[in-house]
Amino acid sequence: MIIGSALALVWGLAVGEENNQPAGAVPAVQKPVIDEANPGPDVLTREYCSACHSFQLVQAQRLNRATWEWVMEDMVEQFGAGWITPPEQTVIIDYLVEHYGPEK
């Protein structure tokens, strides 16, 4: 445990507290590092969504714009992806609607 924490610190990570932490004490999730100067919407979407969960979750859904906007709002406000800037949000939502929108 001590070694584990030390290790995590070496890597500059926020180590999760022991379970049972009070509400709101969890830090924002780490923003993913993208190794491209100007990532396209596909890279941006995949990298940002995959910061927390499998991209499979996104790929399995077929949602309209209003619902993807709702999802984005929750990710930014409740699930620690507050680093997604408003312009990036627009790019990602457009990409999601185009590729994972309702089947025609």
Partner: peptide
Amino acid sequence: FLTACGAGADAALKGLVGRGLLPV
């Protein structure tokens, strides 16, 4: 090694995964 570290390992792994440093 991470697993042997016990309770901290999950957090460490999660952090690494979150940063794209470990395959999911």
